[in-house]
Design a binder for these strands. Sequence first.
DNA 1: CACAATAAGTGAATGGCTTTCACTAAAGAA
DNA 2: TTCTTTAGTGAAAGCCATTCACTTATTGTG
Lengths: 212, 212
Amino acid sequence: MQTPSKTSQLGRPRTPRLSRKAIGRAALEMFQEEESLSIPRLAERLGVRQSSFYKHVTGRQEIVELARGALVERAPMPELKTGNLDEVIRLTFDALRKAYSLVPALLPLLLTQPVSHPAALELYDRFVEAFEFAGTPKHLVIPTLETLDSAAIGASLDAMTMESAWSIADEEQDTYPHLFAAQKAVAEHPVDRFAFLADVLSAGLRAAIGDA
Amino acid sequence: MQTPSKTSQLGRPRTPRLSRKAIGRAALEMFQEEESLSIPRLAERLGVRQSSFYKHVTGRQEIVELARGALVERAPMPELKTGNLDEVIRLTFDALRKAYSLVPALLPLLLTQPVSHPAALELYDRFVEAFEFAGTPKHLVIPTLETLDSAAIGASLDAMTMESAWSIADEEQDTYPHLFAAQKAVAEHPVDRFAFLADVLSAGLRAAIGDA
DNA sequence: CACAATAAGTGAATGGCTTTCACTAAAGAA
DNA sequence: TTCTTTAGTGAAAGCCATTCACTTATTGTG
């Protein structure tokens, strides 16, 4: 008649097994490794049953938002205390694309819900501060940030749809002659997409902001 | 003993009830109206059982690609036979964003799979032709198109996450002072995001292409 | 023309998913 | 100590995509 040391799993555990932070981190990890999020599988990773999540979180969407938080916390915030607009543009773009590139599979989900995680809001708050410090007119700061954010997401997703965004079957090459030739041209003379985008954004934003 | 005129629904019908084109159109319509795609509900719309789709299509992803085709066919192709680079940039961006804005809910799905629908490939083929005609170096045409495409998608998605991409609770306004102030500034002095982006892209791409 | 092969639907089933809810047991407050 | 709240469990409901054996019509072949 031994004591039921058999960890009965039922009832409140002596030490908590879950927390919002742990959920966010595990979700991010899962996105990186499996390119998708499933609550049963996340539960398995955390040694817990699926229903347990709903004590900490209202649903799937909130888990995604926690993953955003975990992503931001992992991403290093650059020093932006320069007054140089070009530098702020490039550093911001680079910080964003580096973070996003870690988890391309998460991006479509991040895109469809507003940013509400405190860590993410704080990050953007600092970006805003830097743009204002660099002389951006107040009403253009948000559009500027949105532009950089979209561009960083687009670039990271492009990198995910590896190779090319356009998939042309061999026998169709003559049907789309210009597109096919252009793909060949860039294959033979590779262009660093990130650098290209950074140049475009830098020149474009400086022009748009300066004209204001 | 009357003949079983009761349309038995079983076996091959005298006239086809489905086609790839019809599926694509219905899927696009469903995305517009319900902001999501479900095969059972799509079957209901088309007066058919869910399993029927798999005679025309290999799976969900292919239905999404057919929706892309339907979207392209609905979108009007602009006249691009000008040699003016700025004009080509603006017309391309505008054509893309107009098409994407019709179905923002579809965009995250389009982003995650390569373009393979013939109508879409033909559209991009013509864009490529126009950029070459306007003097873009061959190896920069694809990066340029990708930039415009990402920007158009980003802008259309921003418009979907209505109001603002950043959701700050009232009691947190002081926690993110710069972000909050910037949001107020743009609210008081509204900026046309599409026009802003078009200006940025135009200036930026012309600079990047010219420098090549 | 007969008849085999193929094509287009159906219906039922499988296995995945998210979410809810009554429950249990521990922690914390009064 | 007793009461309330908290953090887990387990079972179930209701979605979803996909598969497969089946039926019936059409198409191709000798």
